[in-house]
Design a protein around this nucleic acid. Structure first.
Lengths: 346, 346
DNA sequence: AACCGGGCGGCAATCGCTTGCCAGTTTTTG
DNA sequence: CAAAAACTGGCAAGCGATTGCCGCCCGGTT
């Protein structure tokens, strides 16, 4: 039953699991366009025809070719997630949340690591702007200007970064920092330092401002040390600098830094929280079992990932939404563990 | 606004950064095919022509459309990485390593979470087999049979899983487990238990066998408890079961479990390593700062990710290699920290 | 009896790029 | 110096799906 002998016979094609709509069309005796419609806009096709086609598709184990679909329709069913450092545990939750939500929507996750470089970030965005439907930028290091340009070309949702005209979901760490300040002040701390993370981080600035404001409210001022990298190793330098300020407590840009500080302080024989209290940010994996367990701002990271995806998908489906720029703020709360305590007597 | 209803003009196209090879062809006065060749197989085109084209491409800010390229050439420049649980810190390093290596090779990383379900894993593989050049399966839960079928259709590299005919990189934890056994025995432990992870995990079996063999070599036998899930929470149950065996030491399927056990033991007031020693596997993020710091088998996880990618890319470039089934074994070593010590006196 | 409109399918043009094949033009080579 | 062997660049046929447009068939209107 091979009228004209096409070299790679239909049979072979089927065996290789490479059935196309044409194969289905051939088998069911309709045009390829009908197959396409039966599969993607079912109501455009007569019920019996449709069912026949669907059955054939199933039987041939048909899987639409994403590339081809993307080429003609423009939709890729893929969303990119750019993180600044894939090894930072903070992103684990984000990745997880995003992945879950995307999977539920039948989309794929393209993960890219910008290695904390604005240039690389920009470059990657350029390369893939055609191959994804949208992008989620976690902790983007790009200048607002650039971000705006990109957002104009491609649906974008930023995480922990506010840029006019760009949708975003931010974790309300300033509020959390306030809570931390209250906590520390109520424990008698008068001298608190902020351990700065990457200067290019928007959240970093936001946290510092919140800390300063919070302290000011009590007529106290705050120190600021750093900037430091955000790996644990950088915590050593931070710890030393911290001791040098004479502060009795610190709030760090993130937990990684805090954990690093904890280690270094232990090494130097400084008692936490006896001599100094440490408060982190994010509540990443490990914050609860380091030693001592870290008092930190618990951020709904996974939720942030999910929400960002939802927002993006919403935008895709309803371009109208895209014009309006929505931003969602997720609350944080202080989780008190054992790295913070009464300020030492003078 | 667009009388003839013509599609966006070339000019508009360029403005939108959507230049195609046709635009370049038009600008430089050559055929599109020449542009294509100038860009992807430079030596196929005369130098001056090529340079003219490249200049134009640069000026028009041309970015090739991946979908289109994939459609006609079959290459997608994308590799999928399937992990069983994106939140498991073990994978962080893997993801990182893979991402690095892929990026260096100009390929993208498609990350998928199989949620520890063989079905989902299979389903995902089916859906994307057309949209990636190859797949890296980390801790696949698929039966060998299925894996073989997939490997026949698509370049595959498995991590920590050996299947006849499928390339793989495995971390030599059996050897590491031997080291752990020597370590424990030398500390006087005679009664060691293995804390089992997911039964569907290949590595899990391998580790258990190694432990048993190692103990046997000293004329000792080993207990086995579990299986347990691989989250920290499952560690509680594991700890209780462990105490019940009367073992003075245990080796766990992975660090997550070990950390969970440590916590539970602390809760129950059991001294580690005074009363019982705990040895983990993998040396994930956190193993060095939990309390007490975990003695564990340090696995070159990131390296595994890199190696897996290299292997895969090699296969892609040289299909001949694909026939031969290579496997790479990465060594592990025991990192002794403070969760293991002298066996308690009887 | 002529006309309408909705439901269904087919035709064919794209989408952007790759590639086999071919035809002029050099270069090499014997 | 003619024949063979590169070089170069163009043509055109896809890759697999989507989609605008058209036409056919039918039942329902005037």
């Amino acid at each position: 039953m091979n009228p004209e002998g096409a070299p790679p016979s239909r049979a072979a094609a089927r065996q290789e699991g490479r059935a196309t709509i044409n194969d289905i069309a051939a088998v069911t005796g309709v045009a390829a366009s009908t197959v396409s419609r039966a599969l993607s806009r079912p109501d455009r096709v007569n019920r019996v025809t449709r069912e026949r086609i669907q059955a054939a598709a199933r039987e041939l184990n048909y899987v639409p070719n994403t590339q081809a679909r993307a080429l003609s329709s423009g939709r890729t069913d893929t969303v990119a997630l750019l993180v600044s450092d894939a090894t930072n545990p903070f992103y684990f939750g984000l990745i997880r949340g995003a992945q879950q939500q995307l999977h539920a929507a039948g989309q794929a996750l393209l993960l890219m690591d910008t290695e904390d470089s604005a240039e690389l970030e920009n470059h990657l965005l350029g390369k893939m702007r055609r191959s994804v439907d949208g992008v989620i930028l976690a902790a983007s290091r790009l200048p607002e200007q650039t971000l705006a340009v990109i957002a104009a070309e491609l649906p974008v949702v930023t995480i922990n970064r506010n840029v006019p005209g760009v949708h975003s979901v931010v974790i309300d760490s300033p509020d959390g920092v306030m809570q931390a300040v209250e906590h520390l002040v109520s424990l008698g701390h008068r001298h608190v330092a902020y351990v700065t993370g990457p200067p290019s981080s928007w959240a970093n600035e936001a946290r510092w401002r919140a800390l300063r404001t919070g302290m000011a409210r009590h007529g106290l001022s705050a120190d600021r040390i750093g900037p430091f990298g955000v790996s644990r190793h950088c915590g050593s330098a931070a710890a030393d600098a911290l001791l040098n300020t004479g502060a009795t407590a610190c709030v760090t840009f993130n937990d990684l830094l805090a954990i690093g500080i904890l280690r270094r302080l232990a090494e130097r024989g400084v008692d936490v929280p006896g001599e100094i209290s440490v408060v982190g940010c994010d509540d990443i994996f490990g914050a609860d079992f380091c030693s001592p367990p870290l008092t930190t701002l618990t951020a709904p990271i996974e939720q942030a990932g999910r929400v960002a995806v939802s927002m993006l998908l919403e935008n895709l489906e309803n371009p109208a939404v895209r014009a309006s720029c929505r931003r969602i703020i997720l609350p944080t709360h202080l989780t008190v563990r054992q790295s913070s305590g009464q300020a030492p007597r003078l």
